[in-house]
Design a protein around this nucleic acid. Structure first.
Lengths: 192, 192
DNA sequence: CGCGACATGTAAGCAGTTACATGATTAT
DNA sequence: ATAATCATGTAACTGCTTACATGTCGCG
């Protein structure tokens, strides 16, 4: 994956200097819709980036003794990030998806169980979609193309679209399996 | 990922006994839209499955000396596969996506370059979509829910939906960045 | 005083990619 | 002949997850 985490970290630091803990929160919070990482991956990566001279840090004390390393981009780090950001990369291979792998073998499932599994998956994706739509509604108006909120807004919209597509597909699966084989080009949006 | 490759292999073998090479072709061919694996991962996994008693094989000779190990499911293998197939699993975390990670930092890109990168990505996804639609059109009519073609048809439809959503999102990104901030609930399907 | 959030790290192991390594068969 | 495809394996490395390990701070 050619060190994607490295650039996720550099990118976040380019917006604001922060600690490993803060990065960990970001990568299991807002960004989590398209990139995630645990602290056990972040701390070693920060150490490495520091050794590579792409970031540096100063130790702050919260309270009396609790140490907090606040990382910031070096010039080299910012240059490296911007080079990556503007690079043209090949299209990624389609994402792996265990649920779809199982659906590939759908004909070997017991019909009732199959229906339940799909219905359950649909419920979970609808919940995720509702949560994403809620977050998206917090943007009253699209941000300026130069504002840091732009990326947030764009990827959030992408995540909503992705979940809509999942929900549509799962709804369609249910109708196909009910024998009511409907036109595949149906609108289907009432299911979302 | 709790040994997804194991079940991909068991599932394929439940449809038809075949060699590691055949599995390798399947996992870099038809199934590739939602699961993939290289031969360097498949051969060791087959060895392990054999040791676990979930598959067995017989050596066939193609031509004069070329050996070909044809694997088939054992009873234990079939039972293990069916148990997995009917298991209710948690929803997967959202798939990682490097392009979207980059778009999260879109405000730091040079506007023209940004436009080019998105337009290029859109072209690639449109190509993938066209290829998937072509494959899907080979199904004149939806397969019977008990036929082995069912899974194929279902996941192919899901892949089409996924790519449509990607194309719609990328088109939308272009219009947003052009300053012509349009309603986010627009149909947008003329872009796909 | 206890709980949840803040804060930082390491270790073991699994999954997956790229590269190394070899050789036979078939079609042009 | 030679290139593409068939066929099977191993080694080294990267990325990621789960678990181990420790301790502070602020609030109720």
């Amino acid at each position: 994956m050619v060190r994607a985490l490295k650039y996720a970290i550099l990118g976040l630091l380019s917006q604001e200097s922060c600690s490993g803990y803060d990065l960990s929160m970001a990568l299991s919070g807002a960004l989590q819709e398209f990139w995630s990482a645990n602290h056990s991956q972040i701390y070693p990566e920060l150490k490495r980036l520091s050794e590579e001279g792409l970031v540096d840090y100063q130790v702050e004390i919260s309270g009396n003794v609790l140490e907090r390393k606040v990382y910031s981009l070096t010039e080299a780090g910012r240059a490296d990030f911007l080079e990556w950001l503007h690079r043209e990369e090949d299209i990624a291979s389609p994402p792996k998806d265990v649920f779809r792998l199982r659906m590939f073998f759908a004909n070997e499932m017991e019909p009732e169980r199959r229906r339940d599994l799909i219905a359950h998956e649909l419920t979970l994706h609808r919940e995720r979609l509702a949560r994403l739509r809620g977050k998206r509604e917090q943007f009253a108006v699209p941000p300026e193309p130069s504002s840091p909120a732009l990326g947030d807004y764009m990827v959030l919209t992408g995540a909503v679209r992705r979940e809509e597509a999942s929900c549509e597909w799962l709804s369609w699966c249910l109708t196909v399996l009910d024998g009511a084989a409907t036109d595949t080009e149906e609108k289907g949006n009432e299911n979302v």
